[in-house]
Deep mutational scan, measured.
Amino acid sequence: GRPPQPKSVEDLLDRINLKEHMPTFLFNGYEDLDTFKLLEEEDLDELNIRDPEHRAVLLTAVELLQEYDSN
């Protein structure tokens, strides 16, 4: 089946190999997954995450988090 739900933002970023963005998220108040899963493209602009590939991966991760919630 699906991988288990990540336990933290750090756990999530670790899985998608984008842990380099951890300080950015923490500094901007994305300390838990409840906050993280509200992330949208405009937020990525504000966080200055410009890499299109990173953005795509992050937004996909957000969608997956929302799916875990609805099940």
Rank of each mutant, 00 (worst) to 15 (best):
D43P: 00
F27A: 15
P52E: 09
K37G: 05
N48R: 09
E63N: 12
K19S: 14
L33P: 01
P23C: 11
A56S: 13
E31P: 11
Q5G: 04
T24R: 09
E40G: 14
E41H: 04
Y68P: 13
K19E: 08
D51N: 11
N48E: 14
D11S: 04
Q5V: 11
K37T: 05
E10T: 06
L38N: 13
Y68S: 14
L58I: 14
P4Y: 14
L12W: 06
V9A: 02
G1T: 13
K37F: 00
P23A: 14
E41W: 06
V62F: 01
R55N: 01
K19P: 10
M22W: 15
Y68H: 14
P23I: 08
L33I: 11
P6M: 10
V62T: 07
E20Y: 02
D11Y: 04
L47S: 02
H54V: 11
Y30S: 04
L64N: 15
E10K: 08
L58S: 07
D14K: 10
L13H: 03
E31K: 14
D34E: 13
R50G: 09
A56T: 11
E67L: 07
L26S: 09
N17E: 09
V57C: 14
G1R: 10
E40S: 15
V57F: 04
R2M: 08
E41Y: 02
E63Q: 12
L39V: 08
R2I: 13
N28P: 02
L44K: 04
H21P: 03
K37L: 06
D69H: 09
G1V: 12
L18V: 04
I16G: 05
D34L: 05
R55A: 01
L33M: 05
L18W: 02
S8C: 04
L18K: 03
V57R: 15
A56G: 09
K7L: 09
F36Q: 04
F27T: 15
L38W: 09
D11K: 03
E67D: 13
L33K: 00
M22E: 10
I16P: 00
F25N: 05
V57M: 14
E40F: 00
E67Q: 13
L65A: 05
L44C: 06
L44D: 02
L26T: 10
L65H: 02
V9H: 01
V9R: 00
V57I: 12
N28S: 08
L33G: 00
K7R: 10
P4C: 12
K19A: 12
S8Q: 06
P4V: 12
H21L: 15
F25A: 02
L26V: 13
A56W: 02
M22K: 10
E42F: 04
E67F: 05
E31S: 15
D45R: 08
K7P: 05
V9C: 01
V9P: 05
R2A: 07
S70C: 11
N28I: 00
V62Y: 02
E31D: 14
E31W: 10
L38I: 03
L26W: 06
D43L: 01
E41N: 08
H54P: 04
S70Y: 09
L47I: 05
T35C: 10
D43N: 12
E63F: 01
P52C: 06
E53F: 05
E40Q: 15
L58N: 07
K19D: 05
I16S: 07
K37P: 02
